[in-house]
Write a protein that binds this DNA or RNA. Structure first.
Lengths: 150, 150
DNA sequence: TATTGTTATACTCTATAACTATA
DNA sequence: TATAGTTATAGAGTATAACAATA
C-alpha cells in the first residue's frame, strides 16, 4: 500500500461519474436512457425468468423497475411473457430490435472507452481491465453469495 | 479491446457500490457519515478558501453542503472562519480533532482495501492502482479544466 | 397462506429560487 | 449591481405498504 493516493471508493466514484457523463449523450443519440441501457444489458446473455430477479441484477427494487419495463416494452425492445409453468411470473427477454439497439449503443460506448483509455500504455491497459473485471465479479458472478439485500 | 467483458461504466458503478457498502460500517464506527468523510478528505491537503469551491470539489452544490458543514463544525471537526480579505467568504479548514478522526478512518479503510485487493497478485495490483489514479485524475487534478458544471 | 407483479401513499432527497451580508 | 452564504419552496426520486392474480 504505497502510492495509493486516493481511496479506492473515491476513485471508483469519480470514474463512475465520468463514464455516466460520457455515456449519457451517446445513449440519448440512440433515444434511450441510462437505466434502459442497464436493463437491456442485463438481458443480453439470457432472458430474466422473473422481474424480481432482473430487478436484483440491476440493483433496483421490483417497484422501480416497472416503469422502465413499461417503456421498453412499449417500444418493442423487450417482451414480457407469462411463464406457463407459473403464471405469476413474467419472463423478460430482449426482442430482435432490442438486441439491435443494444448492439449499436455498445459500439459507440466501446469507441468512447477506447478513447478514454488511449493515454494508458497497452500492457498496463490490459492488466487494468483484467483486474477491474476480476474485482467487479468478486461478489456478483452469478449472484451466488448473499447479494440479495436491496 | 479484446477481453473487455463489461462496460467500464458498469464495472466502476459496481465497484463503487461495493466500496460504499464496505465503508459505511467503518465510518459508522467512527460516528461519521459518508459525506462527512468525503468533505473531511477534501480538506486534508489544504483548507478550502470558499464553501462554493469545496462544494465543487466534492461534487455537491453549495446548498446541499451546508447541513454537512453545520454538523461537522458543531462537532469541532472543522472550522469556518471569515476571510479577512473578503468577509463574504468563509474558509473551511480541518481542526486537529477533524484531522485525527480522518486519520483513524483512513487506517481502517486502508485495511479494508488491502483485504479487498488481497486476491490480486502484487504486480498487477500496483499497475491497477497506478492506472486507476491516473484515470481518476484525468479531468480533475486541480480542477484546472472545465469541471465546473454542477 | 405465500408470492409475483402492480399500484398508491408517504417520505427523502434534490434543484431552484428568494433572502441577507458583504463587496 | 454582483457574489458568498443561507434559508425556503417546489419538484423528482425512493421506500413502504396495500392490492389483485396465481400458486
Amino acid at each position: 500500500m504505497t502510492g495509493q493516493r486516493h481511496d479506492l471508493g473515491a476513485s471508483f466514484a469519480r470514474l463512475t461519474r465520468m463514464m455516466i457523463d460520457a455515456e449519457t449523450p451517446i445513449l440519448r443519440a440512440h433515444e434511450i436512457e441510462m437505466w434502459d441501457y442497464t436493463v437491456l444489458s442485463a438481458l443480453e446473455s439470457a432472458a430474466a425468468p422473473t422481474q424480481a430477479e432482473l430487478a436484483a441484477a440491476v440493483h433496483r427494487d421490483k417497484t422501480r423497475l416497472i416503469p422502465i419495463l413499461d417503456r421498453l416494452e412499449s417500444r418493442r425492445l423487450l417482451s414480457r411473457t407469462p411463464d406457463p409453468t407459473d403464471r405469476r411470473n413474467r419472463v423478460v427477454a430482449l426482442t430482435d430490435e432490442g438486441r439491435a439497439v443494444l448492439a449499436s449503443c455498445r459500439v459507440d460506448i466501446r469507441a468512447m472507452e477506447a478513447e478514454f483509455l488511449a493515454s494508458v500504455p497497452p500492457a498496463k491497459r490490459r492488466t487494468f481491465i483484467e483486474v477491474l473485471n476480476q474485482l467487479a465479479d468478486l461478489t456478483a458472478p452469478g449472484r451466488s453469495q448473499s447479494d440479495d439485500r436491496e
